[in-house]
Design a protein around this nucleic acid. Structure first.
Lengths: 340, 340
DNA sequence: ACATCTACCGTAAACGTTTACAGTCGTGCC
DNA sequence: GGCACGACTGTAAACGTTTACGGTAGATGT
């Protein structure tokens, strides 16, 4: 065990017989005489000195931390982002402070305020509901922030978004190519950004493909497995029933697979199933799940890179970038029975 | 946009015509005259003042942050821990700094050193390889830390561990009850803590059950799906082949299921499969996977609670607690074909 | 009228750094 | 020898808070 109070730059200066400025210089790699460096390092080693990052932060006004705020870190989509963001930030010399807000706007606002308190130098946030209050708070930020997920035009903050419109188009085209006509849609809440976008996109894509939307085959619930299960059971009761299901995320799709199996329907023979987000679950389920990848990982990476750019050049730089990540369809067994 | 430099306690004091001490008191809820409070709050509001957390940390010597270090945050086991740890810390008023070290001992040591630099007030770490250097570094810590995963006796740090011995015992007993005798074992690297423990536990449990260990049915690889797939293919080539497989984690078990399906074997008819860790993947696979839960979530929660206790009472308290979380077996379709 | 008490408030020091500025000392050049 | 210069080094101020301490004003009691 070391001495009671941890040694500071002053302790070391005394022990080494130099000034605190010299100690500081040694630890910052500024030029000093070899002899001075030797003595400082010896004293520091002997007394177990470690520089205090808080004091340094106070002077430099930088914490070397970035906050990442999501609704629920258990959600594989956010996890995929996190896995990309973390190494990028680490490489840039920043630590990552994780906030899981439970989709509570109040908590999200707390995180935004935390940025003002200098908890972190920058922020990546992926809000699931974008309220006016949240937008105002974001606009008032003075530190750099990047929002993952679509924002209304005119927001003065960098924005990395998915393109669910194109993504859903890809999925429906694929189903149409397979000859499916009666396509059901199981969605999450319409007051969330993804829910709303996916609903609009579904209707637009159906129209574009010349397919009528049967409201009886459209179900709105939560982004959960239960919803997929219940909704599918209900849709299967209708006649004519669906010959394909588009699910607004992979969890819903897994529930749909459960329900179809329970009802003795063959996938994809009787009903083809497409999920969204292309999470790791899609590769594990049986049958494996065709899924629309909205590029979560890439969105995370781009967001982190964008933020690092902003942090490097604190002058305002270009006004507010919007990056849209292209989606792609990952075809697996639930639509194209061939491969496992 | 606000004025250029963000206002400090001094700015507010001047604007409100009071001293900086009064401003501080208002923001710390210390008693002040109502009129003073009103004026301070008005000035603060008008100028957009927010207290600087770094300066506060410097005075108080507390960052209100806790670091959590794991090998790979993509691993569902660590994710399960994280999901429990995060809310506990948040409730205790601490932010969570996440470190994903890529199983690199050097990086883990960096995190430990970061604690010395006062990046955080405490640390939860789950090292996968426990080297002497790491142990020495942990022993030298001055801030509270909790290690998730087994530590050698005598380590002077709180420790929350799993009980893979009992867990594997449960699994093998279950398989024995189902009449399985030729039990294969696919493990991860033996130089990791879990790998080593699971190897020892497997041999001990087999011995206890009076079952001989056929070395031809034991395979060591990585904790990955590929390993499960390749190992199982190889084990199936032997004759007599296994009638059950114990896999050292769920990913390996998923690979085993793939290989069995590819080989046309019925699960659990021909071969029963048991995974470990009971991750969310186990509930999604087909057939769903019987798995030994080592209580990742509970371990995370207990670790966080333990750390909060230490942080609350900075006096040393009880010397070094060891908590062992009891495992349990979650029986699903891969051993007991009945239910889906 | 005076002492005493209460309730606030302000001054200044401290937390552990970084860094502008000025000082010191030895060297090389005329 | 005197001077300029370069290479280091030290002093002190600053970063934005918290808080110990002492001071002031009014209220209360005698």
């Amino acid at each position: 065990m070391r001495s009671k109070a941890s040694p500071t730059i002053t302790t070391i200066a005394e022990a080494a017989g130099v000034s605190i400025a010299s100690v500081s210089r040694v630890f910052n790699g500024l030029p000093v005489r070899a002899e001075t460096e030797r003595r400082v390092l010896a004293a520091a080693d002997r007394l177990g000195y470690v520089p205090n990052a808080v004091a340094r932060s106070l002077k430099s006004n930088r914490t070397q931390q970035v906050a990442f705020a999501v609704a629920d870190i258990g959600n594989p989509v956010y996890l995929a982002m996190l896995r990309e963001i973390q190494p990028v930030l680490k490489a840039g010399g920043y630590r990552l402070v994780l906030h899981s807000t439970g989709a509570d706007v109040g908590e999200e606002i707390e995180v935004l305020r935390g940025l003002g308190r200098r908890h972190a130098d920058g922020l990546i946030i992926s809000p699931i509901r974008v309220t006016g209050e949240l937008l105002r708070e974001i606009d008032g930020l003075t530190a750099p922030a990047v929002v993952i997920g679509s924002l209304p035009d005119g927001a003065r903050v960098d924005n990395v978004r998915a393109d669910s419109r194109t993504g859903i188009d890809l999925a429906l085209r694929h189903l149409a190519d397979l000859g499916r006509r009666r396509i059901g849609f199981v969605n999450g809440p319409l007051d969330t950004v993804p829910g709303r976008h996916r609903d609009t996109a579904f209707r637009a894509a159906m129209a574009r493909g010349g397919l009528p939307v049967d409201e009886g085959l459209v179900h709105v619930g939560a982004f959960q497995r239960d919803t997929g299960f219940e909704a599918t059971r209900r849709l299967l009761d209708r006649s004519p029933g669906p010959d394909a299901l588009l699910c607004a995320n992979d969890l819903i799709a897994l529930g749909a697979l459960d329900a179809l199996r329970a009802a003795g329907r063959d996938v994809p023979g009787d009903v083809a199933v497409v999920g969204m987000d292309d999470t790791e679950l899609a590769a594990v389920s049986w049958p494996t799940l065709t899924s629309v990848s909205l590029g979560s990982a890439e969105r995370g990476r781009r967001a982190a890179e964008l933020l690092l750019d902003r942090l490097r050049t604190p002058d305002t730089g270009p006004p507010a970038q919007v990056i849209t990540v292209a989606p792609h369809l990952v075809v697996r067994a639930s639509t194209s029975g061939g491969d496992r």
